[in-house]
Amino acid sequence: LKHLCRKALRSFLTTYQVLALPIPKKMKEFLTY
């Protein structure tokens, strides 16, 4: 489930946009992995 969620997010968010999100650092590391 997490993998699918990440894949969906990565499909419409660039790494830069993910880093700009107001989310915890650990979550950013997970999303930009």
Rank of each mutant, 00 (worst) to 15 (best):
L21N: 08
T14Y: 09
E29M: 04
T15Q: 01
L4T: 05
K28G: 05
Q17Y: 06
R6D: 04
L13A: 06
T32E: 08
T15R: 07
Y16R: 12
F12S: 02
Q17A: 10
L31I: 07
Y33E: 13
F30K: 02
K2L: 09
C5G: 08
Y16S: 14
L1M: 06
Y33K: 11
K7N: 04
K26G: 09
L21P: 09
Y33D: 10
L21G: 06
K2M: 09
T14D: 09
T32V: 13
L1C: 08
K25D: 03
Y33P: 01
H3Y: 02
F30S: 02
L19Y: 12
K7M: 06
Q17L: 13
A8Q: 02
R6N: 03
C5F: 11
K7G: 02
E29W: 01
P22G: 15
T32I: 08
Q17V: 13
T14G: 06
A8C: 04
K26Q: 06
Q17T: 10
F12P: 01
L31V: 05
C5T: 08
M27D: 00
H3D: 13
R10N: 07
R6M: 11
P24A: 09
K28P: 01
T32M: 09
K26R: 13
A8P: 03
S11W: 15
L31D: 00
L9E: 05
K26C: 10
Y33W: 12
T15N: 00
F12E: 01
R10K: 11
F12L: 12
T15D: 07
K7H: 01
I23A: 04
T15I: 15
H3M: 05
M27G: 01
Q17G: 12
L1D: 04
L9Q: 08
K28M: 10
S11D: 03
T14K: 13
L19A: 08
K28S: 06
H3S: 12
L21C: 09
V18D: 10
K2Q: 03
A8N: 02
Q17N: 11
I23S: 08
F12A: 09
A20M: 10
H3N: 10
E29L: 03
L21I: 01
V18C: 10
R10S: 05
K2S: 05
F12Y: 00
T32Y: 13
P24C: 11
F12Q: 00
C5H: 02
L13D: 00
P22W: 15
C5W: 11
K2C: 07
K28A: 10
A8H: 02
L21Y: 00
L19V: 07
K28I: 15
K25S: 04
A8Y: 06
H3G: 06
S11A: 14
K7L: 06
K2E: 03
T15M: 13
S11V: 15
C5Y: 08
K7Q: 08
K25P: 05
K25N: 04
Y16L: 15
E29R: 06
L9W: 11
L21D: 10
E29P: 01
F12R: 00
M27F: 12
H3I: 04
K2D: 04
L1W: 08
H3W: 02
L4S: 05
A8T: 07
C5S: 07
L21A: 07
F12C: 08
M27Q: 00
I23P: 04
T14L: 10
K28N: 02
L19M: 06
Y33G: 13
R10Q: 09
Y16Q: 12
K26T: 05
Y33H: 10
L19W: 07
K2H: 00
A20C: 11
K7A: 06
Y33F: 12
K28D: 06
P22E: 14
L13H: 06
L1Q: 02
K26H: 03
K2P: 01
R6Q: 08
M27K: 00
L4A: 05
L9D: 00
F30H: 01
Y16D: 14
H3K: 11
P24E: 01
L13K: 09
K25Q: 04
L9A: 11
Q17K: 07
Y16C: 15
A8M: 06
F12K: 00
Y16V: 15
E29C: 02
F12T: 03
F12M: 07
V18W: 15
L31S: 00
L4W: 13
L1N: 04
M27W: 15
P22C: 14
Y16W: 14
Y33L: 11
T15A: 14
P22V: 15
K2I: 12
Y33C: 11
R6Y: 05
L13E: 06
K28Q: 06
P22K: 15
R10P: 04
Q17P: 02
F12H: 00
K28T: 06
H3P: 04
T32Q: 07
L21E: 09
T15H: 00
Q17M: 13
L31K: 00
R6A: 10
Y33N: 01
P24I: 15
P22M: 15
R6I: 11
T14S: 07
K25G: 02
S11I: 15
K7W: 08
L21R: 13
K26L: 06
T14Q: 07
P22I: 15
L13M: 02
L21T: 03
L13W: 08
F30T: 01
P24R: 13
S11K: 14
H3Q: 11
L1R: 03
V18R: 15
M27P: 00
F30L: 03
L19D: 11
K7R: 10
L4C: 05
M27R: 00
T14W: 11
L31F: 08
A8R: 05
K7S: 04
H3E: 12
R10C: 09
V18S: 14
K25L: 05
P24D: 00
K7V: 07
T32R: 13
K7D: 05
E29V: 06
L9P: 02
A20V: 14
E29Q: 04
P22Q: 14
E29T: 02
F30A: 02
I23T: 11
V18N: 14
A8I: 11
L4M: 03
C5N: 01
K7C: 03
Y33A: 14
L19Q: 09
V18F: 14
R10F: 07
L9I: 09
R10M: 09
F30M: 02
I23H: 04
Y16G: 13
L4G: 03
P22T: 13
K25W: 03
V18M: 13
C5V: 12
R6H: 04
Q17D: 11
K2A: 08
L13S: 02
S11P: 07
L1K: 05
K26S: 09
Y16M: 15
L19H: 08
K26F: 13
Q17W: 14
C5D: 01
K26N: 05
T14P: 01
K2G: 03
L4I: 08
L1T: 03
T14M: 08
T32G: 05
L4N: 04
L1E: 03
T15Y: 03
F12W: 01
K28E: 07
P24F: 15
